[in-house]
Design a protein around this nucleic acid. Sequence first.
DNA 1: CGCTGTCTTGAGTACGATCAAGTACGGTGG
DNA 2: CCACCGTACTTGATCGTACTCAAGACAGCG
Lengths: 243, 243
Amino acid sequence: MSSQPVPADLQRRLRKVCSSCSLLELCLPMGLEREDVEQLDELVTPQGPLRAGEHLYRVGDDFKALYAVRSGYLKTYIIDSAGREQVLGFHLPGELVGLDAIYPARHQCNAVALDTATVCRMPYEQLADLAAKIPSLQRQMFRLLSKDIHIGQILSGDFTAEERVSSFLLGMSTRLRQRGYSATHFRLAMPRRDIANYLRLATETVSRVFKRFQDEGLIEVERREVQLLDVPGLQRLCRAVPD
Amino acid sequence: MSSQPVPADLQRRLRKVCSSCSLLELCLPMGLEREDVEQLDELVTPQGPLRAGEHLYRVGDDFKALYAVRSGYLKTYIIDSAGREQVLGFHLPGELVGLDAIYPARHQCNAVALDTATVCRMPYEQLADLAAKIPSLQRQMFRLLSKDIHIGQILSGDFTAEERVSSFLLGMSTRLRQRGYSATHFRLAMPRRDIANYLRLATETVSRVFKRFQDEGLIEVERREVQLLDVPGLQRLCRAVPD
DNA sequence: CGCTGTCTTGAGTACGATCAAGTACGGTGG
DNA sequence: CCACCGTACTTGATCGTACTCAAGACAGCG
C-alpha cells in the first residue's frame, strides 16, 4: 500500500491525470467529452509505483476505490479454502481492477504487481456521484462491469489445455495491440506458474502445450519471449477469446 | 418471445409491478425508498408466461432491456464454437439476467425458461436514466453487476467434482432460503444434464457424486427431489459458494 | 562459481470422460 | 387400465487428458 504524499509542485500537473494520459482512449474515460474528462481529473490520483510482488489491496480490505492500471502489470487472485491460489486475471495499462468489490464493499481478491507498476486511484463514491451527473460516464461504468461478467463467463468454460493456451496467447496479443505494442512478438510478464494457474492447468502442461505449438510452427517461444507465427492457426484451436 | 399486448383494464394494476411484488426485498428494488420504487414501477412491465423451453432472448439479439425473473426458473447458456452447450447459470425469482449484454449492446448468451416462467422487462436506457436520478438505484445496479463478476470468478475456479456438486447444492439451498423456501428440502428444476454442464462435469459424474453423497449420509436424493441431511458436512467439502 | 528459482522433460497415475447397458419415470393412445 | 414409447437417470467398464512426482537444464545473481 504505497500511497506516498505527492509533492506540492506536482499537484497542478497531476490534476490533468486523465486529460493528458496516453491511455485516454482505452481506459475509463473512453468516449467521454473533453470537459467530462476534466471532471474526472478532479478525483483521480496517481499512486505508486508498486514494486514487483507488492500488493495494491488484499481480500477483506475495505473497498474505497477502483484502480486503473497506469503502467506495468497487475495480477488478481484469491486463495481458496483449501489454501490454493487461483489467479483471476492479469491486468494491463488502461484496465480497471476492484470492480468485484463493489457488491459487498470489501475486496474479494488480492491485487499484486507483477513488475513495477503504477495505478490511478478513483474513489468509488465520488466516481459514482460523478457518473450520476455525466450520463456517458455512467454508461461506460456499466459497460466495464458488464464486460468483466462476460470475461468471467468465458474463462469458466470447459476447455482443453490447447484451447486454453491458445486463447490466452490470442487474448494477450489483442490487448497488447490495442495498447500500441506488437501483436505478434511480446514478452510475458508472468511466470509459467501464474499462466498455468490462471488457465486452471498445471505448470508442466503449459510448458508442454507451448512446446507442441512450437513444434507445429504456430509460435516461437523462448522462456518468456513469445512470437506468434500463425495467428489463424491459433484461432482455429481456440473456442473463445474475450474481446 | 411472448410479449402479448396487455388488456387496458390491467394497466393500472400493472403500474404497481414492483411496489406490490413479494420479491421487492430481493430484486432490483432492494433497499430503495417507497417513492423510488414507484418510479421504477413506471418503467417495469411484466412479460410472459414463457413455457418450458421457450427463449427470452438469444445470442446476437439487440440488447434493449434487462429482465428480472418473476416466477419459475431461467437458464442462461452459450454454444461454443465447437457447437457444445455451456450452461452459465440458473436464475431464480428476483434475479436479473441480461447484465452481460450491456457491454456490446448485444446479447452474449441465450436465456430459456426451464419451466413455466414470468419475467419483468426493464428497458435499459430508461433504467440507466432513472439510476442517474436515484443514487440508491444506481448503487444497487453497480452492486448487482459487481456480484455477477464475483460469481463468475468463483465458478471459473479449479475444483473437483465433489467440490462442484456440494457448492451447487449449498448455493441452491441458500438462494431458496432467501426466497422463503426450505433450505434443506427442494426440487431441482433442471435435468442432470444441465447441472452437469453448468458444473463442467459429465452427467454420469453428477449422478455418481449424488450417489456417493447419499451413501455418506450427506444428502437424500430421489430423481429431482433433494434433501440436505448434513449441511456442515457439505460445507466441509466445498471450496467456495457464491453468496 | 555455486546457489536459487524457473522452466522443461519424462514416467506413472488418477480423475473424470466416454462408451455402453440397463432401469425408471411420465406421457400418449388403445 | 395397461402397453408403448421417449427421455431422464443410473450403473458399470474402459479410456484419455492432464496431474503428480521426479529429475534435469537453464538463466539470473550474489
